[in-house]
Design a protein around this nucleic acid. Structure first.
Lengths: 244, 244
DNA sequence: TGACACCGATGTGTGCTGACATCAAAACTC
DNA sequence: GAGTTTTGATGTCAGCACACATCGGTGTCA
């Protein structure tokens, strides 16, 4: 009950659209939403405006509020990602995130090796060693926490704010991997060593080596996670001929 | 005058925040914005809600509307990107986009080689050959159009909607490179060949080769563009200890 | 006399409502 | 079939009541 009406309205509509309950092209009327959500016009209108900025709906005069096709949604918005992870798009969303992460992290590692501040490099080494200890001891909750922090520091250390912004999504996938039992009781020894390799390469300013070691981690992560999106069909969004 | 008041309000506030005219921590009052923008409360409130969803501001009772630090902004939102490109963050934004693209496109090429529909592969080959002809003939407007379409198809063909969503940004950087004179009169012969290599590798389903060739294109693109962000300082966003 | 807890005034976002403006789809007229 | 009118939806405005965090004054206690 602590959440505002606005927040609830956005949540309700957004999750139903992304979850597929409101199909593409479905038209709603503002008045109808008022009675459905039991809120006033202002709340509905402000919620619709937010959903509009996320690319989930468009408003057309004399027609109403229309649900836009999925390829118009902003796939990088935290709300959209959360709704997809909660609904039937979960598998496809996990795959997208994993592939994005696989592409970005090696690049981030290379940039971190070239640019990261000294203190960050040192902490990265410390954490990679702590991960090894926690991993060997089978202390998985601690390991997860260190793992998240390791990758957060790595992305942050790249000095690229678009990379750094993926921290939340990466934490989500790491947590999900543990929670959904896709993680062995003990992390593989090779994975622990790769983390140390990444950290040491960054500390040494060796971009090439950092990227290589990070790629190994990513390959392993994809292999661990891929069962969760088996048989998810890929969608190929159309390419428009003109840009605005 | 065709744009709505809402649109104008979002634009006005967003560009001033991202452009740096309204510094982090700056507090505004809704009432003050009404008179400043000469619009009613509804418009101000709906605009603020949108900016809130982009992470640009937060609203606090009894205090007002506060500008959030840049690392809270959603760096993937098209509006935020546009405002950054228009303002003083232009250099840093171009670098971020170029680095992201360099990370993503080789991965997208590899995925496209494994997953893209047949027709898309064929069009990719056709376009790469047309690019070579247009490039050798020095028909730069046509070359730019083909270049954009090539990379759009590549990203789309990956079957990853997060990759595909970068089409707009990539088009932006390609256009910018040409407009700002960072492009030679004739594209380098090697670059033309790399595009053909990428297309052929995708057509042959050779993911490894597609990624390699794409990496070459990216290295070249970074080299062309890097003058535009010389001396731009990198920012390292803090890593929070806890996640919500 | 001073320190501290309490409590009400104040100001600001949140939410509600009625009215009018605007504009494009749909119906109508010629 | 082309042009015009009607209609119905969003867009915009203005006023009000409410919730609640902050501030400052008041009272109590040491």
């Amino acid at each position: 009950m602590s959440t505002s009406l606005h927040h609830r309205a956005v949540e309700h509509l957004g999750s139903r659209i992304v979850g597929g309950a409101l199909p593409t092209g479905h038209v709603m009327l503002a008045e109808q939403l008022e009675s459905e959500l039991r809120v006033s016009r202002s709340v509905v209108r402000e919620a619709v405006r937010v959903l509009q900025s996320l690319g989930l709906v468009e408003t057309i005069k004399r027609v109403g509020i229309r649900v836009l096709p999925a390829h118009r949604w902003n796939p990088y918005d935290p709300l959209v990602i959360r709704w997809r992870l909660a609904g039937e798009g979960r598998g496809a969303q996990l795959r997208s995130l994993a592939e994005l992460r696989s592409a970005v992290e090696p690049a981030a590692a290379e940039l971190a090796a070239l640019n990261a501040p000294q203190e960050l490099r040192e902490e990265l080494v410390r954490i990679s060693l702590a991960m090894r200890d926690a991993g060997r001891a089978g202390e998985m909750p601690l390991f997860l926490e260190l793992d998240i922090r390791f990758h957060a520091l790595l992305l942050s250390g790249s000095g690229n704010e678009m990379f750094a912004n993926l921290i939340g999504q990466v934490a989500e996938t790491l947590t999900g991997r543990t929670v959904h039992g896709l993680m062995p009781d003990h992390p593989k020894e090779a994975a622990l060593q790769w983390h140390i390799d990444v950290a040491r390469a960054i500390a040494d300013g060796d971009g090439e080596k950092a990227r290589e070691a990070s790629s190994n981690i990513m390959r392993e992560a994809i292999a661990d996670l891929s069962p969760s999106w088996e048989d998810q069909p890929r969608v190929f969004v159309p390419v428009e001929r003109k840009q605005s």
